Amino acid sequence: MVTMDLRRLRLLRELEERGTLGAVATALGYSPSSVSQQLSVLEKEVGARLLEKAGRGVRLTDAGRLLALHARTLLTAAEAATADLAALAGAVRGTVRAGGLQSAARRLLVPAVARMMAEHPQVRTEISELELEQALPGLRLGAVDLVVSDDYDGHPRPRPGGLRFEVLHEEPVRLVLPARHPLAGPGGPVALSALRHDVWVASDVGTGHHDMVVGSCRSIGGYEPDVRHHSNDADVQLGLVRAAGAVALLPALAMPAVDPAVAVRDVAGQRFGRRLVVVSRDGPMPPAVAAFLAVVTDLARGLDATSPRDPVTRPGPRRRRGGG
């Protein structure tokens, strides 16, 4: 009879998903040699060669890929059994690992941690600032329980199988210009085509925000934008608008209430919007994760009432003659 350790099967699944022993080690906090040793033990347990050399690394053999497929089923079943037992006992305890982009972490995840501490003190919550692309391997493998991501009009995210996507909040995306910009004066919407010679700031390459900025300038404005600055931090993006004269497309949650150094305008002839989406694994959800998700969902309902008004350019205070 073959006996297989679920922890070693998880390592095999991690290797299938992440591709290298180094990536598995980094994700789990092990050394690459420890991961290699545990997989060697798994090979002895099943009596088959699971890994083979591939250049300077390793790859799964046919037997390794077959076992990884079964490992996925076994690990999912074990996770479901744990969730069902916890639900049967009525216990809300355990660890919740959640991630999200900056604005979601600030407005939803941090307040959710405070609520969970008060309402479910036996639940440990761990929060990370993550883009969906970073979080997908962990979501699939169970290292991350849920992620709050975003989805922009005209630039939908992929929807990998085995994951659940639920919309939490919808908000407008608008142009942010330095107050001294020629198009920042009083007036209506601004055409993207009028900004073809401007310097842009966007999130890092590969993120949904970067794809939205570049794709919109290409499809609506008819040009390749000069995205000279990159930051996933909305405050840094706003700082570059104020100090460096860059232009940006930002969602409402990233805006300050009032900022005399910037002007906010709609995009002419186009509706821009963003949805905050919570992503989790399909299947039974442990009570602690379900409780955290319920809190996040409740907080999202209040975003419309608590979001800052659209920032406007306001003249600075007049100086009083004579000083003092």
Rank of each mutant, 00 (worst) to 15 (best):
A246M: 13
Y223G: 02
G221S: 06
Y152S: 10
L130G: 02
E131D: 15
G208I: 01
R159G: 04
L132K: 05
A234C: 05
R196P: 01
Y223L: 05
R218C: 08
H210D: 14
V213A: 02
L163A: 02
A244E: 15
L192Y: 00
D211W: 07
V214G: 04
D233H: 11
T207H: 01
G161Q: 13
N232R: 10
L177R: 04
Q237M: 15
V241F: 05
P251F: 07
R140K: 13
R140T: 11
S149F: 10
L177T: 09
D145G: 00
Q237V: 01
L177F: 11
R159A: 12
L249K: 02
E131W: 10
H169L: 12
H230F: 14
A191T: 05
L195S: 00
H197C: 02
G221H: 02
G221L: 03
S216T: 15
E129D: 11
A244Q: 14
P225Q: 04
L240C: 11
V236M: 09
S193R: 15
D150W: 11
V241E: 08
I220Y: 13
G188H: 05
C217F: 00
L168G: 01
H169T: 07
A135C: 09
G239V: 01
D150H: 14
V241K: 01
G161Y: 04
A248M: 11
V167E: 15
L139Q: 01
G188Q: 06
C217G: 03
L139M: 10
S216E: 11
V147N: 03
R159F: 06
S203I: 01
D233C: 04
W200F: 10
D153L: 12
C217S: 05
Y223V: 05
L175R: 03
L130P: 01
H230T: 12
S128T: 10
P158W: 07
R218S: 11
D233M: 07
R242M: 10
L175G: 01
L240P: 02
A234T: 09
V213L: 12
N232Q: 10
P178I: 06
D204N: 11
E170F: 08
F165N: 01
V201N: 00
L168C: 08
R180H: 12
G185R: 13
G162N: 03
P137C: 11
G245C: 12
L249F: 05
D198S: 13
R159D: 03
R196E: 12
H197W: 09
C217A: 14
V199Y: 09
P251L: 09
E224D: 15
E166T: 15
G239Q: 08
E129Y: 09
P160Q: 03
D226F: 10
D198W: 01
F165E: 03
G154A: 06
R196V: 04
D235I: 04
